[in-house]
Design a protein around this nucleic acid. Structure first.
Length: 476
DNA sequence: TCTGGGGTCCTAGGACCC
DNA sequence: TCTGGGGTCCTAGGACCC
């Protein structure tokens, strides 16, 4: 797009990814859409009895937090990130729901489709939020009147496509302004910030309206006497960089002056994939932790493979009894989507930590994602879903009857007792811990290793495999 | 019954290389 | 062998977002 009438060098504000450069566009062509109280709204849409009532979606267990509160619940002081226990205290009559993510994903898909019909360039930020680049939209012009009309039509189509969900929309000359705008008139609002008025809008606002200014940054700024965006601007760039570091300070100073050159980025690929779980009670048993890590590794691997990706860096995250969090990571010589390898690396990393005082949260992640599948030659095997491979299953049962082959963490299914995972094994007997979604602790049962009702799902790596991280060391 | 789960980005130090 | 730098990769931690 041409940028007539701009002063100064084209690249002054241009940092990473910046595209033509100006600090802001000349016309209000960036739209930010945010669905109102999204998860709760989907629940109210699908269950008429919940309409007009306080609804809280989030973790319902003892250690859960609120993901979304409906506006009725917000009236009682319930908000996201609050512990569910606190939310129950504030609003005992609310409906507390665990969340139906398939339904949310489906609603989100419907919304994104509508946005894509409006412009080919959209950037989803989460299930309920996206930027739309109106420069790429089919519009006679980009006047305030024109983009306002488009937004009204867009919101009507979103409601129609989703069975009545409402969205708030902000439009401006930059992502910053569009996003702040969408928040100004929630719910079901529309705000278009006319070009030239950005600074008038921002200056009196609290610094926390700027994305990236959270509690820690706000506190530092407060101590420096900075409360509003105007204060931020007057503090000056050098001082901000001194206070917050080069990247953060620099971009904050730019944003304080409504300079935000970030483009709407159409296809952003994932950079990492991870799974983590917080347990109802702290776990101390090292064997159990190991088994849990294996299950998580299997989930991460499944997602990797579905996305046809491999990852090179395996990380674990451990939150201890005192809520302190530690992480460990290891980088493989090359990307992998081998679940056994990932599980083994994760277990090795966990072994380096002292978890004897209790683990509250455990997680596994993979990053350094590569867009190709390792060992493409064996793609057929991968697609053959070894989980149901009869020959493989027979081999495992044979091994089990010799007292081998059942390792802690192995996922299994039993015709009578349901899904579980191996807790221990030996002498022809497997001890399996069963769980259901509702009752995480479950039961521990000892079963004959050759019990025909016991089916194998995934196999933990044999201990005598070479450790690819230390090729000269034969196992541990 | 304080404090979820999925991410992104940045910093800082050390290793290592040129 | 007295003091270089710069660049890249890796790791750990932290802030932040929805």
């Amino acid at each position: 797009m041409e940028q007539a009438g701009r002063t100064g060098p084209l690249w002054t504000a241009g940092r990473r990814g910046a595209w033509h450069d100006p600090g802001v566009r000349a016309e209000p062509t960036i739209l930010h859409l945010d669905l109102d109280a999204f998860y709760a709204a989907v629940e109210q849409r699908d269950k008429p009895s919940l309409r007009g009532r306080p609804v809280v979606v989030g973790g319902t267990g003892g250690r859960g937090v609120v993901a979304t509160a409906s506006y009725e619940a917000r009236a009682f002081g319930v908000h996201s990130a609050m512990s569910t226990a606190e939310a129950r205290r504030r609003c005992p009559n609310a409906a507390f729901l665990g969340g139906r993510f398939d339904a949310y994903r489906e609603a989100s898909r419907q919304v994104m489709r509508v946005l894509r019909e409006t412009s080919p360039v959209i950037e989803p930020l989460s299930l309920d939020e996206a930027y739309v680049d109106l420069e790429a939209a089919d519009l006679p012009d980009h006047s305030v009147a024109s983009v306002s009309a488009l937004a009204r039509d867009l919101r009507a189509r979103v409601a129609e496509a989703t069975g009545g969900l409402t969205a708030s929309v902000g439009i401006g000359t930059s992502k910053l302004v569009a996003k702040i705008g969408s928040d100004l008139d929630k719910p079901d609002g529309l705000v278009v910030v006319a070009p030239g008025l950005e600074q008038d809008l921002l200056r009196p606002m609290q610094v926390t309206v700027i994305p990236g200014v959270g509690p820690a940054t706000a506190e530092r700024l407060r101590r420096a006497g900075v409360h509003t965006v105007l204060d931020l601007e007057q503090l000056g760039e050098d001082e901000l960089v001194r206070l917050l570091g080069r990247a953060h300070g620099g971009s904050l100073f730019a944003m304080a002056r409504a300079q935000d050159p970030r483009p709407v980025e159409h296809a952003r690929g994932a950079k990492s994939i991870s799974v983590e779980d917080t347990y109802e009670t702290d776990h101390v048993d090292a064997g159990l932790l190991s088994a849990l890590l294996d299950r998580q590794s299997a989930k991460v691997t499944e997602r990797l493979r579905k996305a046809r990706l491999s990852g090179r860096t395996v990380s674990i995250k451990v939150r201890l009894h005192d809520f302190s969090t530690v992480s460990r990571s290891a980088t493989l010589p090359e990307p992998s989507d081998d679940g056994r390898l990932i599980a083994r690396v994760a277990r090795r990393l966990l072994g380096e930590l002292d978890t004897s005082a209790g683990v509250r949260l455990l997680g596994v992640g993979v990053s350094g994602l590569a867009d190709w599948i390792q060992e493409d030659l064996f793609a057929d095997e991968v697609q053959a879903e070894p989980e149901v491979d009869e020959a493989m299953a027979a081999a495992v049962f044979a091994a089990a009857s010799r007292g081998q082959g059942w390792s802690p963490g192995l996922d299994v299914e039993h015709d009578v007792h349901g899904r579980g995972w191996v807790w221990g094994a030996g002498r022809g007997v497997v001890t399996v811990r069963f769980e259901t979604a509702e009752t995480p602790p479950g039961r521990v049962l000892s079963l004959a290793a050759d019990d025909p009702a016991l089916h194998r799902f995934s196999l933990v790596p044999p201990e005598d495999d070479l450790d690819p991280l230390s090729p000269d060391a034969p196992g541990t």
